[in-house]
Structures are given as structure tokens and as C-alpha cells.
Amino acid sequence: MLHTQTHAPCAEAPAADDFAAILVEQTDRLLTREVTAACLREADAGAFPAAAWQAVCDAGLPHALEPEEDGGVGLDVPAAARILRRAGFHALPAPLGEDMMARALWSAAGGAPVDGLVTFAGGLWPAARLCAAPLPAVPWAGVAAHVLVALSDDAGERLILLPRDAYAVETRRNLAGEPRDALSIAGEDLGRYPSRPWSSAAGADGLSAYGAFVRAQQMAGAMERCLGLAVAYANERKQFGKPIGRFQAVQHMLAVAAGESAAAAAAAEVAAAAFGTSHFAVAVAVAKARCGEAAGKVAEICHQVHGAMGFTREHTLHVFTRRLWAWRDEFGNETLWQQRIGRAVCAEGGEALWPRLVALRTAGGFA
């Protein structure tokens, strides 16, 4: 378990930024050790990485956003977001983001601590709809102990925590081989399951906004890894007697990819800084749209730099590009979130646009 008190009693407490940096370094070491090529191959074939997941749980990472009084680590969201970016960087084939976010939302709504893996379904669902048709593309529902769902009825909006015996699962997978299951709720008596009043920070998008937040962080990390692989390959692969990275055309492509990756990371950081504020709905829309757009360009360029080598299963690149292609569409693609941005701007009026941009810039620490 990770703890916020890592110093000797007589020592001065490290600054929050220092602790976050230490935590990211610890996470990197853990994931480097646990997310091996064999682990990724087994996950690709449909096996859940139980050993890697146990190591992640032993480190307390799923509890990063839960308050210390509930047995959590009590990190702030920007620090936790850095952990999610490292999970994307290492292509962790397990639902760390879903578990971390579901626990944080349930705890913030006043729910009691939960044992076992927790995931969540995107959207805000009418109560009658939940029992009428399967919920689509629920990440890792088949291996989760609970699924968190946002619903609305005559009493208002609330979060409901469904135990594993409350639903049946039809296993489906995304392009990266990750489970995105169809979930059918057994029976129609939802009142027997734990629930808490809740108000979505993103209106009708409900939990999709929080899923988009997780995917934006993961994509930012995966793009960083793809770019690193492409730069390393360009410096190693020789053509006409010199590394291809010395050719101006290749340098230009890598520069474009680096710019896209940096812009995506900045948007993800702004969304993390805006979490829990009135700016979150727009910030997460910007982050998911920008990261989704960048993901396509970065994946394309990195495959171009690698040539035919990058398309083989033996090379590492596809592990990350397949996740980028899958994640950009999950919890809403860039078109959907761009529409959300447009509607928010139109609703506020043109004179509010510049103050909104300044507020987002300040929230992200770019003032």
C-alpha cells in the first residue's frame, strides 16, 4: 500500500510535487517489472493478468483517489492522472483507471469502501432502460466484483453499485483485445442494491465524461511511448549508410508526432486540474477530442517511421497503437466531444468564450 507519510518523524515532509514524482517513479518501476512481453501476449489471448493486477493492488494504486479516512491514499487528481498516463505508457492490460475512478466517485457520493475490482459503465441511464436492454462496452465487467452505473428516475440522479451476481455478461473485446462486455441486469428490483444520490458534472453524459477522462490520460501515456519507440528506431535503422533519423523527411514526421503528443498531454493535464470544478465538462471534452485526434496522427506517423517492421506482431509498437485506435472511440470519439464543446460555447454566448479559455488555461497551470 502506498502511503502519503514516507518520511522519518523528524524529517520535513516532502512537497506535494516531490511526492507525486516519487509515486510516478514507483509506478514506473512496478509496471516495468510486471507488464512483460509475456504478460501482454497472454492478455492479448484473453487471459486476465492476475499477477500484475495483484501487484498493482498491493501498491494501493486503485485507491489513489479515495480519502485516507476511507482507507485510500488521498492523492489529488493531477497526481493520480500521472499514474494513469504511466499505465498507458506501459499498456497495463488491466482496469486501473476504471477501478480508481469508480472508487473515487462512489466515495465522493458517500458510499462505503468496496472490496474487489470495481469498474463502471458509461452514460446516464433511465432506470427503466437498465433492465430492458444490455449495457454496451462495459470494461472488464466479467472479472469485476462490482459495476458502478449512473441512473436517473423520478427521484433524480444516483449511482448504483451492482454486485457480480446482479448481471450477466456477454464477453466482447476491443481492437486491443481488452474486454468490453455487454452487461444484462438480472431482474427489475434495482432498489435492493447500494445506491447514492449523485449529480453528474457533465449532464447527460454522466459517467461517460469520467471514462473519457481516463482514456485521455491513457492515450497521452501511450503516445509518449509510441514516440519514444519511433525515435529510437529512427536512430538505429540505417539506410544509405546513415540512420534514417538524419533524413529531413523523417525528422519532420517525428516533429509533427512530438507536437501532437505534447498538445494531447497538455489537454489531459488541464482536464486533471479542472476535475471537480465547473470547468470540468468542457475541459474533459477538450482533452478527449484532442487526445483522440492526436492518437490517430501519432499512430500513423510511428508506423510510417517503422515501415513494415512496425506492423509485425513481434514488434512492440502494435501493443500501443492498437490501444490508441481503440481508446479514441471509447466513451465517445472526438466528434462527439467536439459537439459538446460547440454546444457549451453556443449556450454561453460568444462573449464568454475568451474568459472560458483563460479559465481553462489558468486551471491547467499555463498562466
Rank of each mutant, 00 (worst) to 15 (best):
T6H: 10
H7L: 12
A11G: 06
P14M: 07
F19Y: 15
A20W: 04
A20P: 01
T32R: 15
V35E: 10
D44M: 12
A45I: 10
P49G: 11
A50F: 08
A55F: 08
V56G: 08
C57S: 12
A59Y: 09
P62V: 08
L65M: 15
E69P: 02
V77P: 10
A79Q: 04
A81T: 09
L84R: 12
A91K: 14
S107F: 01
S107Q: 08
G110Q: 07
T119E: 04
T119L: 06
P126C: 00
R129K: 00
P134L: 02
W140G: 06
V147R: 01
P163M: 01
T171K: 09
P179K: 02
D181A: 00
L183A: 01
Q218G: 11
M223K: 14
M223L: 06
A234G: 03
Q248T: 06
A249E: 15
A258F: 04
A263G: 15
A268V: 03
A274Y: 07
F275N: 06
A285I: 04
A287C: 08
A289G: 09
A289F: 09
A295E: 12
H303I: 04
Q304I: 09
V305R: 05
E314A: 13
L317V: 12
A326W: 14
A326F: 08
F331P: 05
L336S: 07
W337N: 11
G350I: 11
G350Y: 12
A352T: 07
R356Q: 12
A367D: 15
